[in-house]
Amino acid sequence: MSYVVTASPHLHSGDSTPRIMWNVVLSLVPVVAAAAWFFGPTALLVVLASVAGALLPERIWGRRSATRDGSAAITGILLALTLPPGIPLWMAFLGGAFGIIFGKLVFGGLGQNVFNPALLGRAFLQAAFPVAITTWPVAGGPWWGLRGDTFAIPFASPQPLDTVTAATPLGLMKFEHKGTPLWDLMLGTTGGSLGETAALVILLCGGYLALRNYLNWRIPASIFLSVAIFSGVLHLLDASRYPGPLFMIFSGGVVLGAVFMATDMVTSPVTHGGCYVFGAGIGLLVVAIRVWGGLAEGVMYAILLMNAVVPSINRITQPRVFGTREAA
């Protein structure tokens, strides 16, 4: 009779990396469903195209059965949620593939990447297809109707759009100085990307992940606080030029970014102190880009910029070792 010999501990919490990842996917299902509710079946097609784009390179070049750990699926879904509903599917596919190849695989795959792959995919699309990615159809209209040139042939000259397009609340604010009722922002009955409209759904899903300890609540909390403080100060200085904190938080991608993008475990700090610094930095950058930058929205760049400094944040926020006054 022979016995198994392993190193201690001989117990485990039962958690696993795929389990965390698939829980995140699960928590994204209601967000995708909300997108489908507002933007029709097109939304689901965009999600599918982006997920397929993310899974394909992971399958080809990733680790053995890497597609099964769920992380590439998250990248695909998250990327889709940052895209306008009417985006041609081939672009969504390309964005997913770019995010995984250049945002993850080139670094060495799962756990090795510096930048959030979904946001890198979006940054690529924004640079490559600036028009397609800023064309926002209005919510509502016939539910079954396509919201843009969904089935465009890759790299062909874009068809003239005959759908009604509208500016996002942020675009309205930035370029026309028009506000949007807060309630519309929270429920999502406004223009915008697939996943940035239904703030309440996103918050509920994030709450689920935080309860299961699959999401560090300190990151979204400090992002919201930081956005609120910086935009609140500006609003107090000049209310006519700068929108108030609630508008800043609930418009655009702040909620989606704070709950699902900034909290990506791989690309966020490991220390609690670091999470506060990271969140505060993102909030500051979001407000700065929105208020003084040329873009209406700044969440993507804010998170990517802070991703880059995560190693430094980790280094300066090491916990104090038990029985010492110094950090490790």
């Binding site: 490991v270 220390t271 490790a328």
Partner: peptide
């Protein structure tokens, strides 16, 4: 008996929250 497949570190930080002497096991 726990024998599970090992995955790359995803820097979740759970080990820092667990360490009773406040080390950084991840690093």
């Amino acid at each position: 008996a726990q024998r599970n497949r090992t995955y790359p570190c995803i820097r979740c930080g759970h080990c820092l929250d667990a360490c009773p002497v406040f080390l950084n096991p991840q690093l």
